[in-house]
Every structure is written in structure tokens, then in C-alpha cells.
Nucleic acid binder design. Sequence first.
DNA 1: AATGGGAGTTGCAAAATATGCAACAACTGA
DNA 2: TCAGTTGTTGCATATTTTGCAACTCCCATT
Lengths: 248, 248
Amino acid sequence: MSQSLDRALTLVSQLASGPKTLDELSGVIGVHKSTTLRLLRTLESHRFVQRDGVHHYRLGTALFDLANIALEERDVRRAAEPALRDLNARLGHTVHLASYEDGEVIYIDKYESRHQMRMYSRIGRRAPLHCTAVAKVLLADLPAPALQKVLATMEFPRLTANTITSPAAYLEELDRVRANGYAVDNAEHEDFIHCIGAPIKGARGEVLAAVSMSVPKVLLDFDGLLAHLPDLLATAEAASVECGYVPR
Amino acid sequence: MSQSLDRALTLVSQLASGPKTLDELSGVIGVHKSTTLRLLRTLESHRFVQRDGVHHYRLGTALFDLANIALEERDVRRAAEPALRDLNARLGHTVHLASYEDGEVIYIDKYESRHQMRMYSRIGRRAPLHCTAVAKVLLADLPAPALQKVLATMEFPRLTANTITSPAAYLEELDRVRANGYAVDNAEHEDFIHCIGAPIKGARGEVLAAVSMSVPKVLLDFDGLLAHLPDLLATAEAASVECGYVPR
DNA sequence: AATGGGAGTTGCAAAATATGCAACAACTGA
DNA sequence: TCAGTTGTTGCATATTTTGCAACTCCCATT
């Protein structure tokens, strides 16, 4: 481990909670302010950090560049785009693409609803593991040891009346996902939206990503949502084929 | 300057051009592979970097988190959202929000067109300075010394038949932006799209960000686009008011 | 206008870490 | 099974990082 680097990256993470002064940042990493300044100067030269007025530092624009590049590096995103865009155009609802990365589920693409609505999800954000359709799809495909490892640190905060709040109930839900070949979010994450999700597979049948379609309850009831399941599964299969999957 | 940190951040930047092996990364920063490994281990522990298979490293998910947070830190984005969302809903065309940061113009929000279309712009990406409406709006408001500084390093690659390709012509264009109170991209960036942009101002009249509306030429000709100028200017003013601007 | 306090900045000697080396481990293809 | 490639490790040495004390700059108060 590189101590100097560790300190610098801690500074960057600390700036995630808002702009801070040199003294504040020194306090966080426990070194002299002249040392902190030297680290900030280097971070600034790489644009990870920038001055915000005279006294504050904040996160810099290199993060945008790198985050965009990190997204575009994910081949499944490019391969899935035509199918997902088409689903969004035909049905007019929000479509997400998410992938599993190191114990987290990240939204890597999103096509906005034709109807004006605000959702939690944004490209680059993590999806909560316990209550989103995409996360259920992705965790359902993990090998048992990896799934146990994730569950060991997973939390189950109740976000709506329907949220799954125990590991046991969650494992049962993942069994249903495996049996059905798709997942649902029955207003478990945000109480005005429900959602269906399906896996996008690769050449060897492994799950590369998950696609989901989210609809406000006022526009479509749950049965109406499920009526779109064939569309979603067809979209997932079309995207899978683009990723090298050979259907049976 | 912190040499160790500088090397580590160079590694991160290098991974922007695709996954790389330990040896490749050592070659880039000119240190022994055991040193490179130690730097990568620290980057990995902060999730700036992750393993991609057994032999490659690639950009990690912390970049998504930080980029999202960096975006949401920008108050103008939150303040402008209602006005921009409304413009997008009423007219159905792509609406962008961009801000000026350290010599660059960054898209910080985007509302997709009702019509299926693919554009260069993405949230977090830089807008080319010489040929986008948002960049013209933002550069037109810079004090002369800062503008000269930007122009000193600015490039003018021809992207379409209409692209401005010289500093002199660009300065004339900025004069027009100042006189008109709005900017146009007359298919200068992407030859199938034109675009109008306007400033969003703060409490002291300073330009905080730029809003733009982009339309494919096949949907609306240039006169048709200009007919929407009152809508765009009204949106920019509504957003400005949310940012503390007091109209005259 | 002067002053004091807060925050940023600097040069350098001392303290501490980063570094490279050489050997080893693991994996893969022939 | 073996060779080559790539990742990994412990430790002595080389080099950088660090803290100090003083300085500069800016802003608010008197």
C-alpha cells in the first residue's frame, strides 16, 4: 500500500461530501497542511480536484472524463443500445441497463420515459441491491460463494411498504427470479414505480448485464406491466444476441 | 508536487484508453513493476481501478460515484431542472445544460428528444469550444484576459462544412452572441443538427451556465428553429430566476 | 487606514516511505 | 511436463515525503 496515494485518494473521496478548505482536508487525513497542499496541487494538476473560490476545493472535471470513458469501455452497453433504444421508442417507458461490478450494481445506460417523471436512477449510480429488478437479476446469477459474500455485507433498509427486509426473503425472491427468468420490483424501491428486469447474456450464457423497464403505477397497474414482459424478454434476447449469445 | 501520486494518477489516466497489463502500465510511468503493483493495489482499494480478468486493469466504479456527486454539487443544475424539463416536455427536443469549468465546457444535464436520435453529447462530456452553442454562450461571457488565455490553446478542427475554423471568425461570432443575447450552432458540430443556446444568470448577472435546444435539420429548418427562440429565452430566464437573478 | 485573524504558501533538514532487486508463484499453451 | 509470461513478495537502499516555522495574502473590524 502506498501511504501518500492512500491519503490523496481519501481527500478526493472526502470532497464527495462537498467543497472543503485546506485545514478541513488536513484534519481528515491527519497530516500538516503543507503536506495536504502538496497533495492537492498534484490532484489539481490532473484535474481530479479544482479550486472553488479562494478557500475551497471541490471535485474536478477529470472525473467526468474518466467516468464517461469507464462507461463506454463496457462493451455490453454499446452492444445493447439498439435493442434498448427500440424498446423505449415503442413503449415510451424508462429503460435501464445495469451491470455487476465488484459487489455493486451500476446503471450503465438509461433511456428516459416519454412521460415526465423523476426517478432515483442515473447513469453511473449504484442500484440498491435488495429492491431493484436489475440487481435481483444480476445477483441471481452469481455463484453461491460470491452471493454469500455479498449477502454478508448487504443491508436491507425498508424504503416502501413492499421492500424486502430480510436475507431469507431475499434468497427466496432470487429463487423466483431464477425460476421465472425475470425479476420484478413491485414498488419496493420507490413506491410510485414498478419495474420488470431480465438478463442479457454473453457467448457462454453468462449474465453480462440486466435490462429493466420501469413504469409509474398511475400509468399501468401491475398486470398491465406484466403484459409487457414478452417485449422485455425479447429485448433482452436481442441484446444478448448482439453480445454473442446463441439462443436455444 | 507529489511524485508517487503523480505516477498513480498517470496510471488512471492511461487506463482511459482501455484495459492494460501490469507490464504495460510499468512502461508508462517508468518504474519497476513491483512499484506499479503497489500503486495499483492502493488505487484498487479505493475503487479507482479494478481487475479485468486476471491480467488486465481497468477504470473502477469509484469514478461513477465521484462523477455523479461532482455533477450534483453543481447547484445550477438543480435550480435549472424544472425550467429545462418543462421546455423539453413542451417542445419534445433535446435540451442541454452546460457549465464552464477551468477552460472547459461540460454538459451537466440533458433531456432527451421525443424523437429517436443519437447525438455526441452526454452528461459529463466536454462540449467542443469552437462549434457548440453552449460553449459560445459561456465563452462570450468570459473577461477578455481569460478569453485570450482560452483562445491561446484552443483548436478549431473542421467538423462540418459550417464549422468556424479560425480564432478571428470565432471572436466575431462571440460578438454576435453578446449582441443577440443567444448563440447558434448552425450545423457546425454535427451536420444533421442545429441548435440555439442562451445564458443562465446568477444573482449578480454573471453567467452560471448555458441552456441549449438541439433539433435535427430534417424536423425543423433553421427559421423553424429560430421561431423557438422566445421559448428558449423564457426558459433561460426562468432558470436564471431560480438562481437568484433579478430580471430588469 | 491600520490591524488582527484566518487561510494559503514556502524552503529545507529530518523522518519516513517508496523503490528496485532477485527470486518465487501461478497460469497457460505447446 | 516444461517453458515462457505475468503477477507477487521481503527487505536493504535510495529517494521522497513530511513537518516546521515563518511568511504572504486577504478580509473584516475598528
